[in-house]
Each structure stands twice: as C-alpha cells, then as structure tokens.
Computed example of a mutant assay.
Amino acid sequence: MRSRIEHQKYYPRMAKRLSHEGVVHLKLVIAANGSIAELKLLMSSGYSSLDNAALEAVKKAAPFPDPQGYDRKDIALTIPLSYSLY
C-alpha cells in the first residue's frame, strides 16, 4: 500500500519554488473491497499545497489490493508522507 501511495506522490511546483518542506500525517481507512472508507488529515505539514498533494496521492493510489492475511474488515492506517527537497 505504501509503495502505491509513494508512486502517486508528487511535489507541487510552487512548493518546490518556495522551498516548502514538511511531513503530512494522514489517517486512511481501507474498506474490505480496497476502496477508501475514510481519508483525513491528522497533522498538517504547515503548507496546504503539500497537504493537498498528499491527499491526492492516496486517492490516486486507490483502490488498494486485498491485503493477504487480514480478515475482510476495514483496515485503519496512519501514514506520514514526507516532502523534502534534499
């Protein structure tokens, strides 16, 4: 799941130009069918462009594959996404 999200992550141009960096903490609940049941910003990076990019990355990564070894229940995750220029 993490690699799918990282693959969709992008750095907004204006944030790069302004040297904005930070970590976005998200709450993600994945339904048994792989869709997003809940997606919420838990802690902002301090920059709305980075926060929005992180939310978009998760949305683009869905639907998620059925994780083996789990019951057919929703899975709740807390995900930090880091945006660093160096």
Rank of each mutant, 00 (worst) to 15 (best):
R2E: 10
S3L: 05
R4A: 14
R4D: 10
R4G: 01
R4P: 02
E6P: 00
H7L: 15
H7W: 11
Y10T: 15
P12D: 03
P12F: 01
P12I: 09
R13Q: 10
R13G: 11
M14L: 14
A15K: 05
A15S: 14
K16M: 13
R17T: 07
R17E: 11
S19C: 08
S19M: 11
H20G: 06
H20S: 05
E21V: 15
E21I: 13
G22Q: 11
G22Y: 10
G22N: 09
V23C: 12
V24T: 10
V24S: 08
V24C: 09
V24L: 11
V24F: 08
H25V: 15
H25C: 13
H25D: 13
H25I: 15
H25S: 14
L26C: 06
L26A: 09
L26M: 04
K27A: 13
K27V: 14
K27E: 12
K27Y: 08
L28Q: 00
V29P: 00
V29H: 01
I30M: 09
I30L: 05
I30T: 07
A31D: 09
A31V: 01
A31L: 04
A32N: 03
A32C: 02
A32E: 04
A32F: 00
N33V: 08
N33H: 05
S35V: 07
S35C: 04
S35M: 07
I36H: 06
I36R: 05
I36S: 02
E38Y: 06
E38P: 00
E38H: 06
L39I: 15
L39T: 05
K40M: 09
K40A: 12
K40I: 06
K40N: 07
L41C: 12
L42V: 15
M43W: 10
M43V: 14
S44L: 08
S44F: 09
S45Q: 06
S45Y: 10
S45P: 11
G46L: 07
G46P: 11
G46E: 04
G46C: 06
Y47V: 15
Y47N: 15
Y47F: 15
Y47A: 11
S48L: 12
S48M: 09
S48A: 12
S48V: 15
S49A: 13
S49T: 15
S49H: 10
L50I: 14
L50H: 11
N52T: 13
N52F: 07
N52Q: 13
A53N: 06
L55N: 00
L55K: 03
L55E: 00
E56H: 02
E56Q: 12
A57T: 08
V58T: 08
K60L: 14
A61H: 03
A61F: 05
A61S: 08
A61C: 10
A62Y: 06
A62K: 05
A62V: 12
F64Y: 03
P65K: 00
D66A: 07
D66R: 13
P67L: 07
P67G: 04
Q68R: 02
G69S: 00
K73F: 01
K73M: 08
K73Y: 01
D74N: 08
D74Y: 04
I75C: 00
A76W: 02
L77T: 00
L77K: 01
L77F: 02
T78W: 02
I79C: 05
I79A: 03
L81I: 15
L81G: 08
Y83G: 06
S84R: 15
L85F: 03
L85T: 10
L85I: 15
Y86A: 11
Y86E: 12
Y86V: 13
Y86I: 13
Y86M: 12
Y86D: 13
